[in-house]
Design a binder for these strands. Structure first.
Lengths: 191, 191
DNA sequence: GCCAAAGTAAACAGATCTGTTTACTTTGTC
DNA sequence: GACAAAGTAAACAGATCTGTTTACTTTGGC
């Protein structure tokens, strides 16, 4: 059920990320999704409300996807390695960057257009990145790393840097380069 | 001379970075700069041409500023240290992030709104980041580092990651955190 | 002081955008 | 098959945006 609403959100997410939030008009989302305007405004009070729901959904789907990806790799390729889960995160980035319609991160892109710190959209971005860092921190703790707080923050810089590099330079190898740097930080922290 | 044009470009750069490129209308730039519309369209054929000139200027001013900053530090605080110039880059980021009107990177923000790889604006972004990486590479070579290519790329990830983190999380400490990670990468490369 | 270059103010055109409304159609359920 | 919920199509309102034009004013050098 609610297939119209879901289809609308899927289309909106794709267009927002590919062309930007302001540059993507409601009419384009409607024509590409085949949904009527009245239906959009039945589900969402405004374009801003649509954007926020797109980001909430993206936050959830990315979170779910990454956790499943990391779980699968830590129990196979990286079985028993303390740093394995973290390396799996960068393997996940690698797959993402190589996906056909990669256009950078919805949240980083949103922060460029909604830079005001009081904007609720900016707040969602902040929360998304903060949650991802918490996840990295939990992976480090599980791996027995000390100073997980500081280390997870440094690894987040590599994650966001890789996303930006992959997007601006059209360089899908960014994830592997970040992974190499991460290995260096992790091995230094392990000694 | 050309003080009107410069004032226009300064105002446009500030507004574009604070509020986004699409969201910033010509009229706002005109009213805040006190320049008339006819003058704008005398100097620039279109809004897009204005944006591109803003980015070209920003590229040049950032490049000049960073080189002067790094030169000053390498000949004082970091005199004689092979990795000194690179650490000075992160000191520069630190100062930038703490500046009053820091709103992220004009180029990263532009790439969010002009994501199409064929867009000339996207091309400027790519060139800017590529030039910065070349600069980092030259600093590494001057410091006697081998594998400057790979290392400069990893450091670029930290640079861009720090910019994004400082902006999205409102965290000016990001530069110092990136600097710590950079020290780790540099010392591992030096051995 | 003259004159050309540069700038201003304001109206205007035309496109586009968000959001509303109305009248009609489809669809699923009992 | 009746009925209610959900969806569509299209016109519309009102705001806003880029870009042009016109008539007037300021300014800087000679």
């Amino acid at each position: 059920m609610n297939t119209r609403k879901d289809h609308l959100l899927d289309t909106a997410q794709r267009l927002f990320n590919a062309n930007g939030y302001h540059a993507t008009g409601i009419d384009r989302i409607l024509s590409e999704s085949g949904v009527s305007k009245a239906t959009l405004y039945k589900y969402f009070r405004s374009k801003e409300a649509l954007i926020m729901e797109v980001l909430r959904r993206r936050h959830h789907s990315f979170d779910t996807w990454l956790r499943e990806f990391v779980d699968a790799r830590t129990s196979s390729k990286y079985r028993g390695e303390p740093a394995g889960a973290m390396l799996a995160v960068f393997d996940g980035l690698d797959r993402w960057f190589r996906s056909e319609n990669f256009c950078g991160c919805n949240f980083i892109n949103a922060s460029a257009e909604y830079g005001d710190r009081d904007d609720p959209i900016h707040e969602l971005v902040k929360q998304h990145k903060s949650d991802l860092r918490d996840y990295l921190k939990s992976l480090l703790k599980r791996g027995g790393f000390s100073r997980a707080r500081e280390l997870s923050q440094q690894l987040m810089l590599l994650v966001d840097g890789a996303i930006v590099n992959a997007h601006t330079q059209n360089n899908p190898k960014a994830a592997r380069e970040a992974r190499q740097a991460a290995k260096c930080l992790l091995s230094a922290a392990a000694r």
